[in-house]
Design a protein around this nucleic acid. Structure first.
Length: 455
DNA sequence: ATAGGGTTAG
């Protein structure tokens, strides 16, 4: 039997509850002491139900009894609900003419939009932010930048950034990371220099953006400089798993496996992302066996591989002709690890079989895929047809691929595909077809991009 | 009560 507790004690105990049973006990106390007339207490109760396991339905029940009564309560719902539900709730509130008196709702809803990759919805939220006058708030503005940058709206992110009157390092980081996400590493570096000129100090997240830019540019010299800069400026960088993973990735992508391994071995904490980056690094450096061995090492440390880890492992098999191992692993993805194979996994297997000369098997594999193969899968198969002189199949696939890309707006590699098909014709000495294809390629020249080298 | 993070096949 619990004695009635004073309000302050009740609320401080609520904050300590770690399971639903405890929250329910405090909930009862709040009721018997008539403390739920206070809307701030209701909001705290809802929040706590969300935080503990299986408390969601209770949280929603309480919310429904208080719906529309205060911003505090609806904001806590927007913050903790699943992104889809948060958007629904937000639009309900708009429809019922409820006004957001503070800016919290906007940041929570925009975060949901970011998680859902919902560009349209987020733009509408942004519109409301501008109308409400909260756009000048530094936190709201930074959230908007992060939203646009994550949802492929980097130009809008730039515009919002340029229009902001006050910015801090979080604002700069958001835009720099956005540039990296949008393949604009050079732009990220320019921003970094500007940020330093404004007298702002880097944080760990700045470091991660810089490393990502180095990886993208395959610039080892710059990578070394960034590494030195991190050691000098970021406190406790050795303990930061994000920075460690970024360093491993950077050294792998810049071709310095030794340095990657040195960083990796020296890390005090590693997670599944760290291991995945290292495995992929070993894979692209031709160390297939070593990459596969890492799977057992990481499991020994109690870590479970995820879909990305398997992409690295299959890529290792692919680069090193480990056919049996690759097929075995592919099977294990679902049967042993319960992960549904995705496009990258299928792509690796097609490449693996194709390179080994098992073109028919690769084609069968593609036809049996439960998801619609993408252009990269077809391209791997086409490459195999060319190497192993499967003229007829290659021709069919090449034509399909060009057709597929004509329909799609993302025909980035169109030019290469013309050349790949043309090579098939060339190795069969079908010069007439080669020349016809070249003409067609010239006609669709709008899709061509000139070659570039990072060296 | 408010913002930001790292690894995917060729």
């Amino acid at each position: 039997m619990l004695l009635p507790l004073p309000r302050a004690r009740c609320l401080s105990l609520l904050g300590l509850c770690s399971n639903i049973k405890q929250v329910k006990q405090i909930h009862a106390q709040l009721i018997t002491n008539s403390l739920l007339r206070q809307l701030s207490a209701v909001a705290k109760l809802i929040e706590r139900y969300f935080v503990v396991d299986n408390g969601e339905s209770c949280a929603r029940l309480i919310f429904e009894q208080h719906a529309g009564s205060s911003d505090l309560i609806s904001n806590v719902m927007l913050r903790y609900s699943h992104p889809e539900e948060a958007l629904t709730l937000f639009s309900d509130q708009i429809r019922r003419g409820l006004v957001m008196r503070d800016c919290f709702a906007y940041t929570y809803v925009l975060k949901s939009c970011t998680q859902l990759n919902a560009l349209r919805e987020g733009m509408q939220v942004h519109g409301r932010i501008v109308k409400s006058g909260f756009a000048s708030d530094i936190v709201v503005g930074t959230t908007v930048i992060h939203f646009y940058a994550s949802c492929k709206g980097i130009r809008s992110a730039h515009r919002v950034f340029d229009e902001m009157t006050t910015r801090n390092v979080v604002t700069w980081n958001a835009l720099m990371i956005g540039c990296c996400l949008n393949d604009s590493a050079e732009e990220a570096l320019v921003l970094f220099k500007e940020m330093l000129q404004h007298g702002l100090a880097s944080t760990d997240r700045t470091a991660i953006a810089l490393l990502s830019a180095c990886s993208q540019l395959c610039n080892l010299v710059l990578g070394f400089m960034v590494h030195a800069y991190i050691c000098k400026t970021i406190a406790r960088h050795q303990d930061c798993v994000f920075i460690g993973t970024g360093l491993v990735d950077m050294y792998c992508k810049c071709g310095c496996l030794m340095s990657a391994l040195r960083v990796f071995d020296g890390m005090t904490e590693k997670n599944v992302l760290t291991w995945s980056a290292m495995i992929l690094g070993l894979a692209i450096h031709g160390k297939g066996e070593a990459a596969l061995a890492q799977l057992y090492e990481m499991e020994k440390e109690g870590l479970t591989p995820n879909a990305v880890t398997f992409t690295g492992l299959l890529s290792a098999c692919c680069h090193n002709g480990l056919i049996e191992e690759g097929l075995y692993l592919f099977d294990a993805i679902k049967s042993r690890f319960g992960i549904e194979p995705c496009m990258q996994h299928y792509g690796c297997i097609v490449d693996l079989l194709g390179r080994a000369g098992m073109v028919k098997e690769a084609y069968e594999f593609v036809r049996r895929m439960p998801i619609e193969p993408d252009a990269i899968v077809w391209r791997a198969l086409l490459g195999a047809c060319r190497i192993h002189k499967h003229e007829k199949l290659g021709e069919e696939i090449g034509k399909n691929l060009l057709h597929l890309e004509k329909k799609s707006t993302l025909a980035i590699n169109n030019c290469e595909d013309y050349i790949a098909l043309s090579n098939i014709y060339a190795s069969a000495e079908r010069w007439e077809d080669v020349s016809t294809l070249r003409q067609q390629m010239k006609k669709s020249a709008a899709n061509n991009r000139s070659g570039r080298s990072a060296v």
